[in-house]
Simulated assay, not measured.
Amino acid sequence: MPAAANADPGDTAFLSSLDQIGIQYPNPTDAVASAREVCDYLAQGHTTNQAARGVKNANPELSLTKASQFVAIARATYCNQVPAAS
Rank of each mutant, 00 (worst) to 15 (best):
M1R: 14
M1N: 14
P2K: 15
A3T: 11
A4Y: 13
A4W: 13
A5W: 14
N6T: 11
A7K: 12
D8F: 07
P9A: 07
P9E: 07
G10S: 09
A13G: 07
A13Q: 09
F14R: 03
L15V: 04
S16P: 00
S16R: 12
S16C: 04
S17R: 10
L18H: 00
L18G: 05
D19P: 00
Q24G: 11
Q24C: 02
P26T: 08
P26A: 06
P28G: 00
P28M: 03
P28D: 01
P28W: 03
T29I: 12
D30P: 00
D30R: 11
D30C: 00
A31H: 02
A31P: 01
V32W: 03
A33F: 06
A33I: 06
S34P: 00
R36C: 03
E37T: 13
V38W: 02
V38K: 07
C39L: 06
Y41R: 13
Y41F: 12
Y41Q: 09
L42S: 01
A43I: 03
A43T: 10
Q44E: 13
Q44S: 13
Q44Y: 11
G45F: 02
T47R: 04
T47A: 02
T48D: 12
Q50D: 11
Q50I: 06
G54K: 12
G54Q: 13
V55R: 06
V55T: 04
N57K: 11
A58D: 09
N59Q: 13
P60S: 14
L62T: 06
L64I: 07
L64T: 06
K66R: 14
Q69W: 10
F70C: 04
F70S: 04
A72V: 07
R75E: 10
A76N: 11
A76G: 09
C79V: 01
N80M: 13
N80G: 14
Q81D: 15
Q81E: 15
V82I: 04
V82T: 05
P83Q: 01
A84V: 14
S86K: 15
S86N: 15
